[in-house]
Amino acid sequence: MRNSIFIILIVGAFCLQSCKKDSSVNLDEVKPTNRSVKLLSWSEYFDPQVIEQFTKDTGFDVDYITYEDPDEVEARLASEPGKFDVVIADDLSISRLSELRLIQSIDDKLLQNSSNISDEYVGKKFDPTNDYSLPYMWGTTLIAYRSDKIEQPEKTWKSLWNKKYKDRVMLIDDRVEGLGISMLSNGLPINSSIPEHIESASAQIVDGVEKIGLRVGSDADVRAGLLSGDVWIASCYSGDAAMIALENENIQFFIPDEGAPLWMDNFSIASDSTNVSGAHQFVDYMLRKDSAAKNANFTWYGTTNSGALSLIDKELLEDETINPPESVRSLCQFYFAPDGDRDVLLNKAWGKVVDAIRSKPKSKYDTEVASGSGQ
């Protein structure tokens, strides 16, 4: 009997140990093995201390991968599958990225802080139900200039075509931005689909390239050119203008009297993310009031997070160029993602700008911005 009991105990212990072993295997299978979140974003778009705290609180490292042109987002998501988890994409890109299935639906049940987002920024035309995106930052495109190189320009977009600034003018290299600003300078809506409007906008930029040496460059080129003094006046993102103005007191900026383009950047999750859980945790962490406030104070952009407003630096909130009053805001316009016909017109019109730039003889100014040098 004792032997039988002993055998039973041994068998029972073996079974128990086997069950424990099987159970531990199952638990390991459900535990996330990927302990990093791969973020594709503009550079310097998150406070490093917030990212560091996210890692401490969640155990997820953040692999911060940057781009300089919003068109890169689609290209990289399509050509580098599995490389990205969280994507920062502008309002013009979201609908196309979702149509191409490059981003996936966001599971709102996994987010505790989405209610912090102001109603003003949700339900936009590019994602009416916010299935694929959640607002992050917003801002304007405005004019920045060097006050030590030129007197204060007229508060109009036409200043970018002033012959007094020959070879020292730069537009952000983006077809929607460039053509939109050109149309805005002539009192036309930035989202116009009328062929004559788009063609005249293109012709004006080409004329600037040929007659006053107008250049185009990335947002990084604009920042570098203004800081070096090689560029005297340029279209510039509002937060970029504020940041470089802190580095050089000679950099000033303003919203032209015609108004300005409005834009909004958003959180999305790559369709082939290898860490969907971590991606949701990252987005939710950045939607916290304290995180959103710190990121806004760091980038000097407008936050879409109404819960963060009480924590944002007073100087930022009171800067009417960054947070324009309603009288100015009413003149500003969000871009719409171009439909098929307008997309073709924009491509054709911007192609003429590119051809004009390529056919223009190279000057010393064309290389100085890229290297960040200048006078």
Rank of each mutant, 00 (worst) to 15 (best):
Y365G: 05
D119E: 04
F126Y: 15
R146G: 08
I88Q: 07
A75E: 14
H280Y: 11
K166N: 09
I51P: 01
Q104P: 00
E320F: 02
S268N: 12
Y285I: 05
K21H: 12
V276T: 14
T321L: 06
N250K: 07
W350D: 05
G351R: 06
A279H: 07
Q333D: 12
I181E: 09
S133C: 06
I8C: 02
Y132S: 10
R35C: 15
Y335T: 00
I255P: 02
S105K: 15
V353E: 02
I255V: 11
M170Y: 01
S277P: 04
E318K: 11
K352Q: 13
D90K: 01
V353Q: 01
D341W: 07
V206F: 00
S182G: 05
E29Y: 13
A89M: 06
S192H: 08
N295G: 00
N116V: 02
V216H: 13
F282Y: 15
S185V: 03
S98V: 04
K124W: 01
E318C: 05
F6H: 14
S18Q: 10
A292M: 04
L39A: 02
T367Y: 07
F267M: 13
C19W: 15
P135F: 09
S268G: 08
K289W: 00
D221G: 03
E99N: 14
L160T: 00
T367S: 10
D47K: 03
R35D: 15
K31A: 12
Q17K: 08
A370F: 08
G340D: 14
K166H: 10
A89T: 09
G59H: 06
V283P: 02
A144T: 08
Y145T: 13
R96L: 11
V50I: 14
D91S: 13
D230P: 01
G302R: 15
I198T: 12
I312R: 00
P361C: 01
D47E: 01
D71A: 14
H280L: 10
V283S: 06
V73N: 02
G340I: 05
S363G: 15
A293R: 04
T141N: 13
E52Y: 07
F282C: 14
Y165Q: 08
V87H: 02
S182M: 07
K56P: 10
S18D: 03
Q104V: 12
D28A: 10
A349N: 03
G180L: 02
K364P: 08
V50Y: 04
K364H: 10
N323L: 04
S359H: 15
E196M: 03
Q104N: 03
G178W: 15
K109E: 04
S24T: 13
Q104K: 12
D319R: 11
M137H: 08
S310Q: 09
T66A: 08
L142F: 02
F334I: 01
V369H: 02
G259L: 00
T58N: 03
A201I: 00
E74P: 02
I269C: 04
G208M: 11
G187C: 00
P325I: 03
N305I: 09
S193G: 13
A144P: 13
K164A: 07
D341E: 13
G229Y: 15
S114H: 12
D107Y: 12
V206Q: 04
L179G: 10
E120H: 08
Y237D: 09
T129V: 14
V62W: 05
I194L: 09
D173H: 15
S306H: 11
I117T: 10
L97G: 14
R288D: 00
I190H: 07
V206P: 01
